[in-house]
Structure formats: C-alpha cells, structure tokens
Simulated scan of single mutants.
Amino acid sequence: MTDETLNPATMLAAMRRERPLVHCITNYVAMNIAANVVLAAGASPAMIHAEAEAGEFAAIAGALTVNIGTLSPDWVKGMRAAATAAAANGKPWVLDPVAHYATGFRREATAGLLALSPTIVRGNASEIIALAGAASRGQGVDSRDSVDAAEDAARALAGSHDTVVAVTGATDFVTNGKRAVRIEGGSPLMPQVTALGCSLTCVVGAFAAAFPRDPFDATVAALALFAVAGERAAAEAEGPGSFGWRFLDALAAVDEAALEAEARIGQA
C-alpha cells in the first residue's frame, strides 16, 4: 500500500484491513506467543522454518521475519533460503539477531543473514551495538546497554547496510541512517514476559507487509502500537502474569483513534 497517509494510526487501520500473511521464523520459546500477538495486532502469522519449504513460502508471504533465538544448522539453512527468496521476490524481511554475540555459531549465522540485506533489523541495545562492531555489555539475551548508548551504532549500522534499524527498550529508537525518531511508552513489565520482543519483530513484519515501500514508517507504527498497548496493559496488571494476557487484549483493543491519541513519537 502507498495511498495511505503515513502515520501510525492510519497505517494500523490499513494493515488490519489487509490482514497480511507474515512468515515468522522464530524460536521455540516464542512461537505460540508470537503467533497470538500477530493475530491480536490484526495480521496472519505462519510459523514455517524447514529449508524444504521456507523459500517457497517466503515468496508468497507479505513479509518475512527471522529470529535466531534457538538456532540449529537446519534452521539456519531455512532462514537463508527464506531470506534469499524474500529478497528475490521484493518482499520485506526483518532480522532479529538475538544474542548474536554469544557464540561463534551465532555470530557466523548472523553475519550470513546480514549479508542477505534485511529490510529492517530489530534488536535490543546490546545486540545493535555489537552488530555495528562496537563493544557491548550484553549477556545472553539480556541488554545491559541503554538505548541512548546504542543510537550512534544504530545510525552507523543503518547507513552501512542500507536498512532500517530499531533499538527497543525503555524508549525505542528507529533510524534509517537519515531519519530518526524515538517512541515512548510501554511498561517495565514487558521484559518480564517471555518473547514479547520476539513477537514485536513479527508485528514489525506485519506493518512492513502492508507498507513494503515504507519500512521506516512501518517500523515506527509497529513500535508505537506496542508501546500504547503495553502502557494500557500495565495500568491494570498486578504483575507479569496478568500483564501477559492483558497485553494481548490491549493490543487487539487499540484502534486508529487510540493510537492517534496515545502514541508518543518524537524526532531524534
């Protein structure tokens, strides 16, 4: 789509009308949660990773998302086949380089995927800093760096790889190397619920599928939706357990008017 006014509210309405098919290659921990989150956001998820069909499916899906959380050699082959097919067919694809710095196997897999030119890269601050070649304080999947500390790395990564980079945390940062915004909202409870970050990557894919020519704005819209839903869910939650199901409900309930009124996006 290119005829919509590109702001998060109208993009949300357009994405939900289209209900795009999103090919989600994600990890074992995230599969069920990510599928439910994509459905609540208004898109259609497909969790396919086998090399034998990943390339074929990526060619027909609206967008591809690749999360390296639980790698195996066979999954890497499926990821590469899907990313290659997505690029060849003009489909946007999103890379989520989970803890890519932790082992040699992960570093090698991520380098190979990055070479396939992802449309969007989404990660926490430590992941983005390390991916740009700087020293991060990350440990496992946890970020020990602030989003502020990752902004220069994100700009550099976006410029060197001609991609959109989203750094998510207490305040999100999105850049394509030229434009940049910050998105406020969400809740400190979000990192306490398994796989919400992985699920966000899939929602970024949903917006990118609906707006393939506008990956920067698509990324901002997805992060704004998540931030508003997170803030709403936290207002009623008693802890991470109740936050999890409240977040799904909040995500489905946020409509065009709510996103227009409640999203807090500023130029960076």
Rank of each mutant, 00 (worst) to 15 (best):
A221Y: 01
A99Y: 02
L225W: 12
I25W: 14
A54S: 15
T65K: 05
E51W: 05
A9W: 12
G78F: 07
P188Y: 10
L196F: 00
D172V: 01
A9I: 14
V228L: 07
K77A: 08
I183H: 10
A261L: 07
S242E: 06
V94S: 09
A257C: 04
N27K: 12
D172F: 02
E4K: 11
A14K: 10
S199F: 00
P20S: 13
V66G: 04
G205S: 11
V141F: 11
A35W: 15
E51V: 04
R246T: 05
P118C: 01
E108W: 08
I128Q: 02
C24N: 14
V174Y: 08
L189Y: 14
I68A: 05
L95N: 11
P45A: 09
N32I: 04
A222G: 11
R122N: 05
D249F: 04
A43P: 15
A35S: 13
G138H: 05
W245Y: 11
A208V: 14
E4M: 10
I60A: 10
F243E: 01
L116G: 07
V147C: 01
G169Y: 03
D217P: 03
L200I: 06
A224K: 11
T119Y: 09
D3C: 04
A102N: 06
E260G: 08
N7G: 01
V66W: 11
A166R: 10
V94Y: 07
F226Y: 15
L157H: 01
R19L: 05
D214I: 00
V220E: 13
G138K: 02
A111P: 00
V38Y: 13
A85K: 07
A87F: 03
T70N: 09
L64I: 02
T194H: 15
N124H: 06
A150G: 15
M79C: 13
V94K: 15
M31S: 11
T219A: 00
T65D: 15
D3I: 15
C198K: 08
N176S: 01
A130K: 03
A154E: 05
A43K: 10
W93C: 10
A218L: 14
T119A: 03
Q139M: 06
R213V: 13
A250G: 02
R80P: 00
E4T: 12
V254I: 07
L200Y: 10
G205P: 10
P97W: 03
G90N: 08
R19A: 15
F216N: 04
G177P: 14
G138V: 12
V228Q: 05
S160T: 14
E236P: 12
P191S: 03
A195H: 08
M79V: 01
G159I: 12
S117N: 14
D148T: 06
D3G: 04
P8A: 01
V121N: 03
L248F: 10
F216G: 09
V228S: 14
A166W: 06
F216R: 03
F211D: 05
A87R: 14
G197V: 02
G123C: 07
A111Q: 12
A86Q: 02
G140F: 10
T26P: 13
A234R: 02
L71T: 08
A30T: 02
I68V: 14
A83H: 05
R137S: 15
G90H: 02
G186K: 15
G230E: 09
A233E: 14
T219L: 00
